[in-house]
């Protein structure tokens, strides 16, 4: 464990997920942290990224890990998270892994086990826990401001992401479509807010939006039941047209004993109307949740403690998304935990 002023050396494994860009910037900007290198199985993509961030490019993941980073951020395609996480854990590197944690129960369990036996941290990249408006509501709930929470309506709609990264709509690499991509953020927030596990999942999925462009589901609605009887819905649809003012958003409405509270994680924007852009756009001015999340990973590594959001949290959120597919297939709710 490194403490005090020692520089922490963090690498990034794969730039398949575009969030790697933001994590790279956050790591570079952070005092006491060195972005020690980038490895990517897509050599061109990795070289470009390394050049942009002014760091060394490693031609293979083992080569980067052989240089003994203190930790790595894994931003590979979803289905490749497990292999890289296990490889990193065996090399003694702490891990922050992009969401969803994995694409199968077996992979998720293997990741948790590998990190536990290697004694390294596994953090899931859920930046929404670090969103200032989202955290404000968590604080409200924690001090009992809403009383008992009865029901929640959560949404995480987005644009269909294939134009940024084609693998997002490849069932093998991504694990699925909108339900894989956009269930886990708010599923994690709901578990965090309610302090309670989901015991049942119902879902309906469809593929009407972008039906000609992709083979995975683009529309999805989930209804979750929690152990304490509270219930919550999630809209994970890629329902934002490509001409929409923003990529999408995260909203939650909570109905509780004392009333109703709503939070919109991305409402802190200025609306821009430019003659040149041809459409209105939103300029975000709220706090940088990615930066706060990376800072928490670094702090956890430095202090040798579990981070605010763990690999287990990622596993439980992924389990909800996987249950959604099972439910949609049979048309009835599915009990958790999944075997």
């Amino acid at each position: 464990m490194k403490t005090g002023n020692e520089t922490l050396r963090i690498g990034i494994l794969s730039f398949a997920h575009m969030h790697a860009e933001s994590y790279g910037r956050a790591l570079t900007a952070m005092p006491g942290v060195e972005l020690m290198g980038i490895a990517d199985d897509d050599t061109d993509r990795g070289r470009d990224a390394a050049q942009r961030h002014g760091v060394r490019f490693y031609p293979s993941y083992p080569a980067l890990l052989a240089d003994k980073p203190d930790g790595v951020a894994i931003c590979a395609e979803n289905a490749r998270h497990a292999a890289l996480t296990i490889m990193a854990a065996e090399a003694g590197a702490h891990v922050i892994c992009e969401k969803p944690l994995a694409t199968t129960i077996a992979d998720g369990q293997a990741m948790l086990a590998a990190c536990q036996s290697a004694g390294v941290i596994l953090m899931t990249a859920f930046p929404m826990r670090f969103s200032a408006p989202v955290a404000e509501v968590k604080a409200l709930l924690a001090r009992g401001g809403l009383g008992r929470v009865h029901a929640c309506t959560a949404t995480n709609p987005g644009q269909m992401p294939a134009r940024h990264r084609r693998w997002f709509v490849d069932k093998e690499l991504a694990g699925g479509g909108a339900a894989t991509d956009h269930t886990v953020h708010v599923a994690d927030l709901l578990r965090w807010y309610l302090g309670c596990e989901v015991v049942e999942v119902y879902a309906q999925l469809n593929r009407i939006i972008h039906a000609d462009a992709v083979e995975v589901e683009t529309g999805g609605l989930l209804l979750l039941t929690f152990a304490d009887g509270a219930f919550a819905s999630i809209d994970c649809s890629w329902s934002r047209p490509l001409v929409h003012t923003t990529w999408g958003g995260v909203t939650l409405e909570l109905v509780g004993e004392a009333g109703v509270v709503t939070v919109n994680a991305f409402k802190q924007t200025i609306t821009a109307h430019g003659e040149r852009s041809g459409k209105a756009s939103a300029i975000y001015w709220g706090s940088d949740a990615d930066q706060a999340m990376i800072a928490e990973f670094i702090a956890a590594v430095r202090e040798g403690r579990q981070p605010l959001v763990t690999g287990y949290d990622g596993y439980k959120a992924m389990e909800i998304a996987l249950a959604a597919y099972r439910s949609a297939a049979i048309g009835q709710p599915v009990r958790l935990p999944l075997g």
Partner: peptide, 23 residues
Amino acid sequence: HALAILTHASGAITHVEGSWAFP
């Protein structure tokens, strides 16, 4: 307060929220 998911013959899906729990 109620949350419902409807499935249509067309394949469309609908989320309906109805509440008497708003202050």
